[in-house]
C-alpha cells in the first residue's frame, strides 16, 4: 500500500515538472519537422494520382507514375558559426506507400537563424554498400555489378511511345559509374546538395519541401523517354543528365511556426 502511494505521488510530481514548459511561448529550443510534398508543375501529386497516364513532360510524352521512392540524407540546419544540427541522417521517402513523407528531428534545436539543406541521395562517403539494414530490407540497393551502394531514386511509370504503345520507364538515379566491378570509374558525382535558404527559428517549426516531378524531364536536358526509358542505371551519361535536371527539382514550400 505504502509503495503504491509513493508511486502515485512520484508520478504526479513527474507529470507536473515535465509538462511545465510545453505551452511557454518564449522557447529556448524548438522541434523541427520536415515534410516532403510533390507536384507536377504546381498540381499536387499523391499516391491517389498514381497509375493513370495524365502528365505530359517537356518533350510532349504523356506518362503515369507507378512508383516513386527517393532518399534524402544529412537533412540539417547550420547556424552562423557553422554548427550543424542533423535532423535526419537519412530518410527514404516513398510517395506510393506514403512512408517517410514527414519527420521530426530527434533532438530539439536552439532557436535562432539557420540555413537549411539536405543531400539528394547519399554522398559517396555515406553510400556504403549494404550498410543500412532498413534500406536493405526494402531492397533499395544497387547491386555491386551496377556499382553498389543504394538507389538515390526509383521512379517508375508508363508513357505512350512514338508507336502509340504504353511502355514502362525506369528513371532510377544512382551514383554514375563506368566499368563497375573491381576497378570502377566514377565520371562525376551524381548526388547533390539542396540548399533551401535561411530560416529564423523562434518556435516549433514545420518546413515543407516541394519536389516538382516535371523538372526531372525539363532542364537543362529535355528528356526524351523514347530514347531513355529503361536500363538507365548502367548508363553513366544518363545519370549525369539526371543530376543536371535534378538541380531545379526541389524548392522550399511553406514554413509554419
Amino acid at each position: 500500500m505504502k509503495m503504491k502511494k509513493i508511486c502515485f505521488v512520484l508520478s504526479v510530481f513527474f507529470v507536473l515538472s515535465s509538462c511545465g514548459n510545453d505551452d511557454d511561448n518564449s522557447l529556448q529550443e524548438a522541434d523541427v519537422t520536415f515534410s516532403f510534398n510533390h507536384n507536377w508543375d504546381g498540381t499536387e501529386v499523391t499516391s491517389l494520382d498514381f497509375n493513370t497516364i495524365q502528365y505530359t513532360n517537356a518533350n510532349g510524352e504523356e506518362l503515369s507514375i507507378e512508383r516513386l521512392r527517393y532518399l534524402v540524407s544529412r537533412v540539417m540546419l547550420t547556424n552562423a558559426s557553422n554548427q550543424e544540427y542533423i535532423l535526419s541522417d537519412y530518410n527514404l521517402i516513398d510517395v506510393g506507400t506514403e512512408v517517410g513523407l514527414t519527420f521530426t528531428g530527434e533532438t530539439e534545436i536552439p532557436t535562432g537563424a539557420y540555413t537549411m539543406s539536405f543531400i539528394f541521395g547519399f554522398n559517396n562517403q555515406d553510400n556504403i554498400d549494404g550498410a543500412y539494414l532498413d534500406l536493405n530490407s526494402t531492397s533499395f540497393n544497387v547491386p555491386m555489378m551496377l556499382g553498389g551502394g543504394y538507389h538515390y531514386m526509383q521512379f517508375d511509370g508508363k508513357y505512350i511511345n512514338t508507336s502509340a504503345t504504353e511502355t514502362g520507364f525506369n528513371y532510377h538515379v544512382i551514383r554514375a559509374v563506368d566499368n563497375p566491378g573491381t576497378n570502377p570509374i566514377f565520371p562525376q558525382d551524381t548526388f547533390f546538395e539542396v540548399d533551401l535558404g535561411t530560416i529564423n527559428i523562434s518556435n516549433d517549426v514545420s518546413i515543407e519541401v516541394e519536389m516538382n516531378i516535371a523538372e526531372w524531364f525539363r532542364s537543362p536536358h529535355i528528356w526524351n523517354l523514347n530514347d531513355l526509358d529503361t536500363v538507365l542505371m548502367p548508363n553513366s551519361s544518363a545519370q549525369i543528365m539526371m543530376y543536371d535536371n535534378g538541380q531545379s527539382v526541389f524548392s522550399l514550400g511553406t514554413i509554419t511556426q
Binding site: 531492397s139 540497393n141 547491386p143 555491386m144 555489378m145 551496377l146 525506369n170 529503361t230 536500363v231 538507365l232
Partner: peptide, 20 residues
C-alpha cells in the same frame, strides 16, 4: 550477373539482392 543486370534479368528490383 544476369539476375542483377538491368539490361538482362533485372530480377533484383523485386526479388532481393546480395544484401537482402
Amino acid at each position: 550477373d544476369v539476375f542483377m543486370d538491368e539490361a538482362r534479368g533485372d530480377c533484383f528490383h523485386c526479388h532481393g539482392n546480395a544484401n537482402n
